[in-house]
Write a protein that binds this DNA or RNA. Structure first.
Length: 292
DNA sequence: GTCATATGTGGAG
DNA sequence: TCCACCTATGACC
Protein backbone atom coordinates (compact mmCIF):
# COMPACT_ATOMS: atom_id res chain seq x y z
CA UNK A 1 0.00 0.00 0.00
CA UNK A 2 2.38 2.72 1.05
CA UNK A 3 3.40 4.32 -2.24
CA UNK A 4 2.65 7.98 -2.82
CA UNK A 5 -0.94 7.46 -3.96
CA UNK A 6 -1.80 5.84 -0.64
CA UNK A 7 -0.35 8.68 1.43
CA UNK A 8 -2.31 11.21 -0.61
CA UNK A 9 -5.42 9.10 -0.13
CA UNK A 10 -4.81 9.10 3.61
CA UNK A 11 -4.23 12.87 3.68
CA UNK A 12 -7.47 13.43 1.85
CA UNK A 13 -9.42 11.08 4.09
CA UNK A 14 -7.97 12.47 7.33
CA UNK A 15 -8.84 15.98 6.22
CA UNK A 16 -12.37 14.88 5.29
CA UNK A 17 -13.14 13.24 8.61
CA UNK A 18 -11.20 15.36 11.12
CA UNK A 19 -10.42 18.83 9.80
CA UNK A 20 -11.75 21.95 11.53
CA UNK A 21 -12.65 20.39 14.85
CA UNK A 22 -10.83 19.39 18.03
CA UNK A 23 -9.75 15.76 18.19
CA UNK A 24 -8.33 13.42 20.79
CA UNK A 25 -4.70 12.47 20.24
CA UNK A 26 -3.22 9.54 22.10
CA UNK A 27 -0.61 6.81 22.01
CA UNK A 28 -2.05 3.59 23.47
CA UNK A 29 1.30 1.89 22.90
CA UNK A 30 3.12 4.71 24.68
CA UNK A 31 5.92 5.52 22.26
CA UNK A 32 4.31 8.80 21.18
CA UNK A 33 2.80 9.56 24.58
CA UNK A 34 4.41 12.88 25.53
CA UNK A 35 3.95 14.32 22.04
CA UNK A 36 0.35 13.16 21.88
CA UNK A 37 -0.45 14.88 25.17
CA UNK A 38 0.62 18.23 23.72
CA UNK A 39 -1.85 17.92 20.86
CA UNK A 40 -4.75 16.23 22.63
CA UNK A 41 -7.94 18.26 22.30
CA UNK A 42 -6.49 20.66 19.74
CA UNK A 43 -8.09 21.47 16.41
CA UNK A 44 -6.99 19.22 13.55
CA UNK A 45 -6.24 21.73 10.82
CA UNK A 46 -5.69 19.32 7.96
CA UNK A 47 -3.36 16.74 6.45
CA UNK A 48 -1.04 16.88 3.48
CA UNK A 49 1.16 14.35 1.71
CA UNK A 50 4.46 14.98 -0.06
CA UNK A 51 5.69 11.84 -1.74
CA UNK A 52 5.51 9.18 0.96
CA UNK A 53 5.59 11.68 3.84
CA UNK A 54 2.35 12.54 5.64
CA UNK A 55 1.87 15.66 7.75
CA UNK A 56 -1.02 16.42 10.09
CA UNK A 57 -1.22 20.06 11.06
CA UNK A 58 -2.15 21.40 14.48
CA UNK A 59 -2.31 24.97 15.82
CA UNK A 60 0.96 26.76 16.44
CA UNK A 61 2.66 25.35 13.32
CA UNK A 62 3.03 21.93 14.87
CA UNK A 63 2.88 18.87 12.67
CA UNK A 64 2.70 15.16 13.21
CA UNK A 65 5.07 13.68 10.64
CA UNK A 66 4.24 10.11 9.64
CA UNK A 67 6.21 7.78 7.43
CA UNK A 68 4.70 4.32 7.06
CA UNK A 69 7.85 2.62 5.86
CA UNK A 70 7.44 -0.85 4.43
CA UNK A 71 4.91 -2.28 6.85
CA UNK A 72 3.21 0.65 8.54
CA UNK A 73 -0.55 1.12 8.37
CA UNK A 74 -2.91 3.93 9.20
CA UNK A 75 -6.43 2.60 9.57
CA UNK A 76 -9.24 5.16 9.47
CA UNK A 77 -12.55 3.67 10.53
CA UNK A 78 -15.97 5.08 11.36
CA UNK A 79 -17.60 4.25 14.67
CA UNK A 80 -20.92 4.73 16.40
CA UNK A 81 -21.41 4.91 20.13
CA UNK A 82 -18.43 4.08 22.37
CA UNK A 83 -14.92 4.46 20.95
CA UNK A 84 -13.57 1.01 20.06
CA UNK A 85 -10.63 -0.35 22.08
CA UNK A 86 -7.26 -0.22 20.31
CA UNK A 87 -6.04 -3.56 18.99
CA UNK A 88 -2.33 -4.39 18.88
CA UNK A 89 0.50 -1.88 19.00
CA UNK A 90 -1.16 1.43 18.24
CA UNK A 91 1.50 4.10 18.33
CA UNK A 92 -0.80 6.98 17.43
CA UNK A 93 -4.56 7.23 17.76
CA UNK A 94 -6.67 10.14 16.52
CA UNK A 95 -10.29 10.18 17.62
CA UNK A 96 -12.93 12.45 16.13
CA UNK A 97 -16.68 12.53 16.58
CA UNK A 98 -17.32 9.68 14.17
CA UNK A 99 -13.93 8.28 13.13
CA UNK A 100 -10.85 6.81 14.71
CA UNK A 101 -7.43 6.59 13.06
CA UNK A 102 -4.89 4.05 14.35
CA UNK A 103 -1.23 4.03 13.32
CA UNK A 104 0.75 0.80 13.60
CA UNK A 105 4.21 -0.30 12.51
CA UNK A 106 5.28 3.02 11.02
CA UNK A 107 8.93 3.87 10.47
CA UNK A 108 8.35 7.46 11.52
CA UNK A 109 5.92 9.23 13.84
CA UNK A 110 7.24 12.53 15.16
CA UNK A 111 6.09 15.93 16.34
CA UNK A 112 7.72 18.48 14.05
CA UNK A 113 7.97 22.24 13.64
CA UNK A 114 7.30 23.98 10.36
CA UNK A 115 11.06 24.29 9.84
CA UNK A 116 11.48 20.52 10.15
CA UNK A 117 8.66 19.93 7.69
CA UNK A 118 10.21 22.35 5.21
CA UNK A 119 13.64 20.76 5.55
CA UNK A 120 12.14 17.33 4.87
CA UNK A 121 10.19 18.55 1.85
CA UNK A 122 13.23 20.36 0.47
CA UNK A 123 15.08 17.04 0.16
CA UNK A 124 12.33 15.51 -1.98
CA UNK A 125 12.12 15.46 -5.73
CA UNK A 126 8.89 16.50 -7.47
CA UNK A 127 5.74 14.54 -6.62
CA UNK A 128 3.57 13.56 -9.61
CA UNK A 129 0.53 14.06 -7.40
CA UNK A 130 1.54 17.72 -7.05
CA UNK A 131 1.90 18.15 -10.79
CA UNK A 132 2.00 21.77 -11.94
CA UNK A 133 1.69 23.27 -8.47
CA UNK A 134 3.23 26.75 -8.52
CA UNK A 135 5.49 25.98 -5.54
CA UNK A 136 7.55 23.65 -7.72
CA UNK A 137 6.73 20.56 -5.64
CA UNK A 138 5.33 18.90 -8.74
CA UNK A 139 7.67 20.28 -11.38
CA UNK A 140 8.95 17.47 -13.63
CA UNK A 141 11.79 19.66 -14.83
CA UNK A 142 13.56 19.24 -11.50
CA UNK A 143 13.54 15.47 -11.86
CA UNK A 144 14.64 15.62 -15.48
CA UNK A 145 17.70 17.68 -14.60
CA UNK A 146 18.89 14.86 -12.32
CA UNK A 147 17.87 11.96 -14.55
CA UNK A 148 19.37 13.38 -17.73
CA UNK A 149 22.73 13.93 -16.03
CA UNK A 150 23.00 10.59 -14.29
CA UNK A 151 24.61 7.37 -15.41
CA UNK A 152 22.55 5.47 -12.80
CA UNK A 153 19.83 3.20 -14.16
CA UNK A 154 16.36 4.61 -14.69
CA UNK A 155 15.06 1.79 -12.49
CA UNK A 156 17.18 3.06 -9.66
CA UNK A 157 16.47 6.76 -10.30
CA UNK A 158 12.68 6.33 -10.27
CA UNK A 159 12.83 4.94 -6.73
CA UNK A 160 15.13 7.68 -5.43
CA UNK A 161 12.89 10.02 -3.42
CA UNK A 162 15.35 12.84 -3.98
CA UNK A 163 14.77 12.52 -7.71
CA UNK A 164 11.03 11.76 -7.70
CA UNK A 165 8.79 11.69 -4.63
CA UNK A 166 6.14 9.05 -4.20
CA UNK A 167 7.12 6.33 -6.67
CA UNK A 168 7.63 2.92 -5.08
CA UNK A 169 8.42 -0.55 -6.28
CA UNK A 170 5.06 -1.21 -7.92
CA UNK A 171 4.81 2.04 -9.88
CA UNK A 172 8.46 1.72 -10.90
CA UNK A 173 8.08 -1.73 -12.40
CA UNK A 174 4.78 -0.95 -14.05
CA UNK A 175 5.78 2.42 -15.47
CA UNK A 176 8.90 0.98 -17.10
CA UNK A 177 6.86 -1.87 -18.51
CA UNK A 178 4.21 0.43 -19.96
CA UNK A 179 6.92 2.44 -21.71
CA UNK A 180 8.89 -0.61 -22.86
CA UNK A 181 11.98 0.65 -21.10
CA UNK A 182 14.91 -1.46 -19.94
CA UNK A 183 15.11 -0.83 -16.17
CA UNK A 184 18.91 -0.86 -16.37
CA UNK A 185 19.12 1.84 -19.01
CA UNK A 186 21.18 4.82 -17.80
CA UNK A 187 19.15 7.96 -17.07
CA UNK A 188 21.39 10.07 -19.27
CA UNK A 189 20.42 8.06 -22.37
CA UNK A 190 16.71 8.86 -22.07
CA UNK A 191 15.32 11.36 -24.52
CA UNK A 192 13.41 14.36 -23.29
CA UNK A 193 10.29 13.18 -25.06
CA UNK A 194 10.44 9.88 -23.22
CA UNK A 195 10.66 11.63 -19.88
CA UNK A 196 7.66 13.81 -20.72
CA UNK A 197 5.66 10.69 -21.51
CA UNK A 198 6.82 8.92 -18.35
CA UNK A 199 5.82 11.87 -16.19
CA UNK A 200 2.43 12.34 -17.81
CA UNK A 201 1.71 8.65 -17.36
CA UNK A 202 2.80 8.72 -13.71
CA UNK A 203 0.50 11.65 -13.02
CA UNK A 204 -2.45 9.82 -14.54
CA UNK A 205 -1.67 6.45 -12.92
CA UNK A 206 -1.13 7.92 -9.49
CA UNK A 207 -4.20 10.15 -9.64
CA UNK A 208 -6.21 7.05 -10.47
CA UNK A 209 -4.44 5.34 -7.57
CA UNK A 210 -5.55 8.00 -5.10
CA UNK A 211 -9.18 7.78 -6.23
CA UNK A 212 -9.30 3.99 -5.97
CA UNK A 213 -6.67 3.62 -3.24
CA UNK A 214 -5.05 0.86 -5.23
CA UNK A 215 -2.57 0.50 -8.04
CA UNK A 216 -4.02 -0.47 -11.40
CA UNK A 217 -1.69 -0.14 -14.35
CA UNK A 218 -3.11 -2.53 -16.93
CA UNK A 219 -4.47 -0.89 -20.08
CA UNK A 220 -8.06 -1.49 -21.10
CA UNK A 221 -7.18 -4.03 -23.78
CA UNK A 222 -5.24 -6.15 -21.28
CA UNK A 223 -7.74 -6.24 -18.43
CA UNK A 224 -9.00 -9.63 -17.22
CA UNK A 225 -12.38 -8.88 -18.82
CA UNK A 226 -10.88 -7.93 -22.18
CA UNK A 227 -8.59 -10.96 -22.27
CA UNK A 228 -10.91 -13.44 -20.60
CA UNK A 229 -8.39 -14.29 -17.89
CA UNK A 230 -9.03 -14.54 -14.15
CA UNK A 231 -8.46 -11.34 -12.16
CA UNK A 232 -5.37 -11.07 -10.02
CA UNK A 233 -5.81 -12.07 -6.43
CA UNK A 234 -3.30 -11.02 -3.83
CA UNK A 235 -3.02 -8.55 -1.01
CA UNK A 236 -2.67 -5.55 -3.30
CA UNK A 237 -5.73 -6.14 -5.39
CA UNK A 238 -4.68 -4.02 -8.34
CA UNK A 239 -4.13 -5.25 -11.89
CA UNK A 240 -0.48 -5.10 -12.92
CA UNK A 241 1.74 -6.29 -15.77
CA UNK A 242 4.95 -7.45 -14.11
CA UNK A 243 5.09 -6.55 -10.43
CA UNK A 244 5.50 -9.77 -8.42
CA UNK A 245 4.82 -11.84 -11.50
CA UNK A 246 8.31 -13.35 -11.83
CA UNK A 247 8.20 -16.75 -13.53
CA UNK A 248 4.73 -16.13 -14.97
CA UNK A 249 4.08 -15.40 -18.64
CA UNK A 250 3.93 -11.76 -19.71
CA UNK A 251 0.28 -10.78 -20.22
CA UNK A 252 1.11 -9.31 -23.62
CA UNK A 253 3.80 -11.49 -25.22
CA UNK A 254 3.90 -14.62 -23.07
CA UNK A 255 7.62 -14.36 -22.30
CA UNK A 256 8.52 -15.33 -18.74
CA UNK A 257 8.67 -12.27 -16.49
CA UNK A 258 12.05 -11.85 -14.84
CA UNK A 259 13.18 -10.51 -11.50
CA UNK A 260 16.43 -9.46 -9.90
CA UNK A 261 17.56 -7.38 -7.00
CA UNK A 262 18.36 -3.72 -7.60
CA UNK A 263 19.39 -1.49 -4.71
CA UNK A 264 18.12 -4.11 -2.29
CA UNK A 265 14.65 -4.19 -3.81
CA UNK A 266 13.01 -6.64 -6.18
CA UNK A 267 12.83 -5.46 -9.75
CA UNK A 268 10.43 -7.07 -12.24
CA UNK A 269 10.43 -6.78 -16.01
CA UNK A 270 9.61 -8.56 -19.27
CA UNK A 271 12.81 -9.14 -21.27
CA UNK A 272 10.94 -9.11 -24.56
CA UNK A 273 8.67 -6.09 -24.07
CA UNK A 274 11.55 -4.23 -22.42
CA UNK A 275 14.59 -5.23 -24.46
CA UNK A 276 18.07 -4.57 -23.11
CA UNK A 277 19.23 -1.08 -24.00
CA UNK A 278 22.42 -0.79 -26.01
CA UNK A 279 24.21 2.42 -26.80
CA UNK A 280 24.02 3.20 -30.52
CA UNK A 281 27.06 5.45 -30.65
CA UNK A 282 29.95 3.02 -30.72
CA UNK A 283 29.38 -0.69 -31.43
CA UNK A 284 32.81 -1.50 -30.00
CA UNK A 285 31.71 -0.13 -26.62
CA UNK A 286 28.93 -2.69 -26.43
CA UNK A 287 29.67 -4.98 -23.52
CA UNK A 288 29.94 -8.73 -23.93
CA UNK A 289 30.88 -8.89 -27.62
CA UNK A 290 34.26 -7.28 -28.08
CA UNK A 291 37.38 -9.35 -27.42
CA UNK A 292 39.26 -8.41 -24.28
C1' DG B 1 2.42 -23.35 15.42
C1' DT B 2 6.88 -21.53 12.48
C1' DC B 3 8.84 -19.11 8.82
C1' DA B 4 9.53 -16.07 4.79
C1' DT B 5 8.10 -12.05 2.74
C1' DA B 6 6.36 -7.29 1.89
C1' DT B 7 4.32 -1.30 -1.67
C1' DG B 8 10.59 1.82 2.65
C1' DT B 9 14.23 4.16 4.77
C1' DG B 10 18.40 5.13 7.38
C1' DG B 11 22.49 3.96 9.82
C1' DA B 12 26.63 1.15 10.65
C1' DG B 13 30.72 -0.89 8.75
C1' DT C 1 26.28 -3.90 1.23
C1' DC C 2 24.06 -5.48 5.22
C1' DC C 3 21.02 -4.96 8.79
C1' DA C 4 17.52 -3.03 11.91
C1' DC C 5 13.13 -1.29 12.31
C1' DC C 6 8.08 -3.23 13.00
C1' DT C 7 3.51 -5.58 11.73
C1' DA C 8 0.45 -8.45 8.93
C1' DT C 9 -0.24 -12.12 5.96
C1' DG C 10 0.10 -16.33 3.52
C1' DA C 11 2.58 -20.77 2.91
C1' DC C 12 3.70 -24.71 5.03
C1' DC C 13 4.27 -28.31 9.02
Amino acid sequence: MPEGHHLHYLARTLTDVFAGRPIRVGSPQGRFESEARQLDGQVFEGAQAWGKQLFCEFPGERYIHIHLGLIGKLDITPYDGPVPDPVGQVRLRLVGDHHVADLRGATGCDLWTREQVEACVARLGPDPLRDALPDGSGDPERAWRKISRSNRSIGSLLMDQGVLAGVGNVYRAELLYRHRLDPMRPGETLRRRQWDELWADLVALMQDGVLKNRIDTVREEHTPEAMGRPPRVDDHGGEVYVYRRAGLPCLVCGTTVRTKELDGRNLFWCPRCQPTYRSRRSPRESPGRSPA
